[in-house]
Design a protein around this nucleic acid. Sequence first.
DNA 1: TTTTCCATGTAACTCGTTACATGATTTC
DNA 2: GAAATCATGTAACGAGTTACATGGAAAA
Lengths: 180, 180
Amino acid sequence: MERELLLLGLIRRSRMYGYQIHDFIERYLVTCTDLKRPTAYFLLDKLVKQGWATHNEEREGSRPPRQVYQITPAGEQHFQQLLREHLAHYTQTRFTSDIGLAFADALPAAEVITLLEQRRATMRAALTTASAAPAHAGTLQLLVDHHTAHLEAELLWLERVITHFATQTADPPTPLPRQE
Amino acid sequence: MERELLLLGLIRRSRMYGYQIHDFIERYLVTCTDLKRPTAYFLLDKLVKQGWATHNEEREGSRPPRQVYQITPAGEQHFQQLLREHLAHYTQTRFTSDIGLAFADALPAAEVITLLEQRRATMRAALTTASAAPAHAGTLQLLVDHHTAHLEAELLWLERVITHFATQTADPPTPLPRQE
DNA sequence: TTTTCCATGTAACTCGTTACATGATTTC
DNA sequence: GAAATCATGTAACGAGTTACATGGAAAA
């Protein structure tokens, strides 16, 4: 559903072909999604079959021919509905990275700290990259801001976790709760 | 891989059967993962086939028989390795909820604000629930803290986004950048 | 007495990825 | 001359979900 919204939103903005669409996503929207090329092609075809888009072949010079996609009026309707639902809806984020944390008491606290510091280093690097990103036009800037804000918050929290383990190095490990 | 770590971590803690494992995850680990029951059964069988665990049937009273799983020494080794990798590694979070934001200029700013306020209401409710959660033992408390910290940060950011749209109600919409 | 809980499992299906194939063209 | 870029696509595979099947026991 998000992927449908994404593709419709892009071809709505301007006529685009598959390769170009995938490029754009990789360049500007990595923080939102991870759409592989074959999947993009497949979904674009699906849009056509559902009547949300049309496509026609075009060629430029000696380049390989392109399938250029365009949104239909029905597609525009559908896009707006998807957009409204999507903006109003909140999806719970899953922190898969916390699974390890739940079992951290299986290792000596000192080692846990070392490992978490490695994680922190990667996150700091990501934050530096995100902060260094050049200013984008309009809505895209929001995404960059979101990314940096999130990384900053995560780093603060990770710091707290590290101190948590640091302050109980000497204590016995506190296990997960038993089932009642 | 996270799922493998999760299941190994649980049966390592104490002998458990599938139904019970799924229950535990639903109760305490919803913020980390969303493991369906059939998937849990399937993965537990896989652990046995790979030699990380053993299982044997037990029954209690007139209850249906249970498949109780136990970690093997090889499984313990494997678990520790997975845990180390997992703790040290940082996975980039994808903000699928930002896709809509990227195209928000397709709707009047006033409507965007209304929709985002709906999203905010859901998030606030989630924060209230998370904050109200009873104190857990040890590592599990970390997960709850993470969840609340994250929601607080996300709410702050959403607030900024809403003011962003509020301050440019009169301005012309700023589109996404064109491809060079 | 009907529904919910306990406990496991299978079978069909969907979605997405990886790997592969093609072929011209530009860059190193 | 080799490698990367442009451009599309297929085919095989894998992971995970949904829906279904079973059957006794407890609760409503």
